[in-house]
C-alpha cells in the first residue's frame, strides 16, 4: 500500500530528471509514496530509482507498453492506483503527464489539479497553488473527496535527494490482452543534439522573431548556448516562422524553464512567453526596442542590435 503514486517518465534510456521533482511534492504531502514506471525493458531505469525514498518502485513492464499510448497507460496506471490503494497520483508537468494523467483521473473518478506550484493550507484544509491565465494569476484550489491527481511544475520543486536506503522493485502484473487497443504508435521525430535538455539546463538561451532565419538563429542563439554549455529555446513567433523546432518553444503552451541564467535575444516579452521563464534566477534581455516589456523583468537589459552584440558576447564568453 502507498498513499501516493508518483509516475516517473523516461525516454527508454534513462529517467527524465524533471519527473523526479514530483517526488518532492509527494514528500510534502506526507505519507508513503511509491514510484510507478511504465514501459518495456525497464530494469536499468527501475534500478536507478531505488534510492529516492519511496516505499517501492512499481514496474509495469510489457511489450504492450513499449510506447506511451494514453489509453493503455491510463488503464494500467488506474489499475495500479487501485491495487495499491493510492489516493493521490502525481506526475510532473510535461506533455507525457498531461496526455495520460487526466485520462487516468477520469478512470479513477478523481479530480485533477494541473501545474501545482506549492501546497497551502486554508482554514486547516489542504489547498494547491497553481498558475492560470498564462501565469498572470495564481489560484488557490481545494479538492473535494480523498482522491486526486496532480501534476507538479518541476521548476517549483527541488530535485529530491537520492540517498535513501534502496527500496524494493515490485513488478506490477496486469493482463496486456485486456488493455484498450484503439491507438497505434507510428513514429517519433529523433533529433540528435549534444545540448542539454531545455527543462534541465543551467543556462538557456532563447531567440525571437528578429533572428530572421534558421541559419542566423543557429549561429547566434545556438552559438551562444554552446559557448555557455546551455540549452536553446525559442518564442512561439520564432517557431512559427520555422526558425526552430516546436519543442524549443518556451512559454504558456510550450516549456516552463527556471534556469540559473536565461538569455532572451530579440524577445519582446509577450505574456505567454514570460509565463515560461519568470522563475529563472537571472534573466538577461538583449533587444533593439528599449520599450520591450521583457526589460521590465530582466535582471540585466542591453539595448541594441543582436547581430552586432551577440557575436561580441559569444566572443567574450569564449575568452572567459
Amino acid at each position: 500500500m502507498a498513499a501516493t503514486l508518483v509516475l516517473i517518465e523516461h525516454d527508454r534510456q534513462q529517467v527524465k530528471r524533471p519527473s523526479l521533482h514530483a517526488i518532492t511534492l509527494a514528500r510534502q504531502l506526507g505519507g508513503e509514496y511509491a514510484l510507478l514506471v511504465l514501459g518495456h525493458g525497464l530494469d536499468a531505469i527501475a534500478a536507478s530509482l531505488v534510492s529516492c525514498g519511496a516505499s517501492a518502485v512499481i514496474v509495469a513492464d510489457d511489450a504492450a507498453l513499449a510506447e506511451p499510448l494514453a489509453d493503455r497507460y491510463a488503464a494500467v496506471i488506474a489499475q495500479a492506483a487501485q491495487k495499491y490503494g493510492a489516493k493521490t497520483l502525481i506526475g510532473s508537468s510535461s506533455t507525457f503527464s498531461k496526455d495520460i494523467l487526466p485520462r487516468a483521473a477520469a478512470l479513477l473518478d478523481a479530480p485533477m489539479v494541473t501545474d501545482v506550484l506549492a501546497l497551502e493550507e486554508v482554514n486547516g484544509e489542504r489547498a494547491y497553488r497553481r498558475p492560470t491565465s498564462a501565469g498572470s494569476m495564481l489560484a488557490t484550489v481545494k479538492i473535494e473527496g480523498d482522491r486526486c491527481v496532480l501534476t507538479a511544475r518541476a521548476t517549483a520543486f527541488e530535485a529530491p535527494a537520492a540517498d535513501a536506503a534502496p527500496c524494493p522493485i515490485e513488478r506490477f502484473d496486469f493482463d496486456p490482452a485486456s488493455l484498450p487497443n484503439g491507438m497505434q504508435f507510428i513514429s517519433r521525430e529523433q533529433r540528435a543534439s549534444d545540448r542539454p535538455d531545455l527543462t534541465e539546463a543551467r543556462v538557456v538561451v532563447s531567440g525571437g522573431r528578429p533572428l530572421q532565419d534558421p541559419e542566423t538563429f543557429e549561429r547566434l542563439v545556438g552559438g551562444l548556448a554552446d559557448a555557455l554549455g546551455g540549452a536553446v529555446g525559442a518564442t512561439r513567433a520564432a517557431v512559427d516562422a520555422g526558425m526552430a523546432p516546436n519543442d524549443y518553444q518556451v512559454g504558456q503552451t510550450g516549456k516552463v524553464v527556471a534556469p540559473e541564467l536565461y538569455i532572451a535575444m530579440g524577445i519582446s516579452g509577450a505574456i505567454q512567453h514570460l509565463a515560461g521563464i519568470k522563475d529563472s534566477r537571472i534573466i538577461v534581455a538583449i533587444n533593439k526596442d528599449p520599450d520591450a516589456p521583457i526589460f521590465q523583468m530582466a535582471t540585466y537589459g542591453l539595448v541594441g542590435d543582436l547581430h552586432q552584440l551577440v557575436p561580441q558576447l559569444i566572443e567574450a564568453v569564449r575568452r572567459g
Partner: peptide
Amino acid sequence: LTTTLSTARPPKRAAGTRVESV
C-alpha cells in the same frame, strides 16, 4: 470537485538594471 478559493497576482519580478555594453 475542485473549487478555486482565491486568486492573486504573482509577485512582480523587479526590473533590473540596464547595461550599456557587452
